[in-house]
Structure formats: C-alpha cells, structure tokens
C-alpha cells in the first residue's frame, strides 16, 4: 500500500517522540532526526547518534516504528548515519531554553577543539539560580552527553550538556 502522508506530516508526527533521556525535548529539536524518505511503500527514517555508544538510539528506533505503525505505516526502516557528525550546534535555541528550564545547562555555541585538552573550565551559568559562580565536578555526568557541575551560590549540582 502506498504511503498517503506527506513528509511534513511524518515529521510532525515524529516530533511527538521525546528524547528518552531528556524527555522535555523531542528528537527533532535535538537534531537526531535527519531525514524522511519514501521508497515505494517503505518509509525510511534517517537518524544520527549524539554519541556513538548512545544507548538511547535503540529506544528511539523502536519509538519511531511504533509511531508510524499507529498511522498504518508498517514497512519502516530506520537508518543510522554518522555523517555529518552530530553537533550540539544543531540544538535549537528554543530547545536550549527548555533544557535550562528542566535544570540542564545548555551547551555553548562553540565546538570542541584542541584547547579543551588544557582543561580550562569556563564560566557556566547555574540553570537554577543564574549564578556564574559554578564549578565542574566531573567531565562525565548522568549520560554520555553531559558533564556534572555544581553551583557555589545555591549549592545545587546540575548537568551541563557538553559541546560536541
């Protein structure tokens, strides 16, 4: 059976899928969903991982298949691509605001370069009280994409979405 939906409609539908680890933003806002293609009666959905070992990818693949099945599309292929490599620059400004409201400090606009080898920690705004007096506890946080910080004013620990 041919697919009667438009690509825009599929995108809109898939925007209902939240990131499994950060449920306040969806897979489009996060930049994981790259493309939707129709090949005959098959719907091909192209996604890219944030980190290569991101365990959320399998969950996202299943969520996509379930969503499309709900509207009657049975033949679905989810393709994983590595190029172009995902970058935090793809996270929309609106989504960054959602991250902040959720308690995760959003990534800066810069991408990693050799300078990070020097380990210079930068001023990060506490997502809870807005103070810039914060310090890094660990480069590695609750998931591969986050680092752990704490606020020296309100004393709360918080996640920082690492630049990549």
């Amino acid at each position: 059976m041919p697919i009667t939906f438009s690509k825009d409609e599929i995108f809109k539908l898939l925007s209902e899928i939240p990131d499994p680890e950060i449920p306040v933003i969806n897979i489009i806002e996060l930049g994981i969903l790259r493309e939707v293609k129709f090949i005959d009666d098959e719907c091909v959905v192209v996604i890219t991982p944030t980190y290569t070992g991101c365990p959320a990818m399998k969950v996202i693949e299943d969520d996509i298949k379930i969503k499309l099945k709900e509207i009657g599309i049975e033949k679905v292929k989810v393709e994983l691509v590595l190029t172009p490599a995902w970058t935090t620059d793809w996270i929309s400004d609106e989504a960054k605001e959602k991250l902040r409201a959720y308690g995760i400090a959003p990534p800066d606009h810069s991408s990693v370069d050799k300078k990070v080898l020097l380990g210079k920690a930068r001023d990060l705004k506490c997502p809870l009280c807005g103070s810039k007096r914060t310090e890094m506890i660990s480069q590695f946080g609750s998931t591969a994409c986050k680092a752990l910080y704490r606020c020296l004013d309100c004393k709360e620990p918080f996640d920082y979405f690492k630049c990549l």
């Binding site: 370069d113 990070v116 080898l117 990549l164």
Partner: peptide
Amino acid sequence: AAIAVKSHKEITYHLRH
C-alpha cells in the same frame, strides 16, 4: 572518515580526562 570524525570528538574528552 565518518567514524573517525565522530569518535575524535569523544576521544578529545577522554584524553583530557
């Protein structure tokens, strides 16, 4: 090349650590 681009970003964090 694609795998290397992706992984190099991560390795940068590992090496710093």
